[in-house]
């Protein structure tokens, strides 16, 4: 069996998840890729394989607890270990507070919080066997700072930050590190609906005066997965170009 570290990436079919998968492939990881859209996921898998990585593809929705359990059971059987988990599956919704349905809030929590929670729980059990591992969650700048018109999304991402810090404390004594990145405005499918005027206005509030790219977040995720971050846990690292909300 290969001695390459094993990383599982959720939301790997696009955006930050896909960018992370590509970078981890280049860094010598064996990859377990999870996302709902099988076609897109297989495209990312082919790119990762072109970098020499061994890749397994698992079309699954992180809100489906049974399907998620099956993915981790498969990892346990086929890999026998897990070195890194990147919880990149996520959803966003923009709406004024008064116009946000409770069902929208619940949907966001199911993907952003419950999905991250369950994957982390299952991953931790595998990582504890080797007394090492790194979990990296994708939080958000708006979860840290708040954002008018994104109360539900911000609340769900703030929960991810709280989960990250709590798991770092609980799993740290057992050798597992838990961190998060808090991206600012990153150009992905999740933000594709923002028009030119909105982008210009947002850029004016970013110290670097430009929007971020998924790859720029993925590089920080890769760092947090790696042994270069061996003494880093419980951190929510802003990757936002100096974004002020």
């Amino acid at each position: 069996m290969s001695t390459a570290p094993v990383a599982l990436v959720t939301g790997a079919s696009r955006g930050i998840g896909a960018a992370t998968a590509r970078l981890l492939a280049q860094s010598g990881y064996r990859l377990v890729l999870v996302a709902r859209r099988e076609g897109l996921l297989r495209e990312v898998a082919r790119e990762c394989e072109a970098s020499g990585a061994l890749v397994s593809v698992h079309p699954a929705d992180v809100t489906n607890a049974g399907a998620v359990t099956d993915v981790f059971r498969s990892v346990m059987q086929s890999e026998g270990r897990l070195d890194a988990l990147v919880n990149a599956a996520g959803a966003m919704a923009d709406a004024g507070f008064a116009m946000t349905k409770l069902s929208t809030l619940e949907d966001l929590f199911r993907v952003n919080v419950s999905g991250t929670f369950q994957c982390s729980q299952l991953a931790a059990k595998l990582m504890l066997r080797q007394r090492s591992g790194s979990i990296v969650n994708v939080a958000s700048k708006v979860g840290e700072s708040g954002s008018a018109g994104q109360a539900a999304y911000a609340a769900s991402k703030a929960a991810v930050s709280g989960l990250t810090k709590s798991l770092a404390k609980e799993l740290g004594p057992l050798g597992v590190r838990v961190n998060a990145v808090a991206p600012g405005f990153i150009e992905t499918d999740l933000t594709a609906h923002y028009g030119a005027d909105a982008r210009t206005a947002i850029s004016a509030n970013i110290a670097l005066r430009r929007l971020g790219q998924a790859d720029e977040v993925a590089k920080v995720v890769r760092f947090l997965c790696s042994s270069d971050a061996a003494y880093v846990t419980g951190q929510v690292l802003g990757v936002d170009g100096g974004f002020v909300l």
Binding site: R73, M76, Q121, K125, L126, L128, R129, E170, P173, L174
Partner: peptide
């Protein structure tokens, strides 16, 4: 509670099972 997590992890590995919550 910390040792309990280790125990679960070790049980799953030793007996090749996956315990639910």
């Amino acid at each position: 509670s910390t040792a309990h997590m280790l125990l679960v992890s070790e049980l799953e590995g030793a007996f090749n099972v996956m315990l639910d919550t």
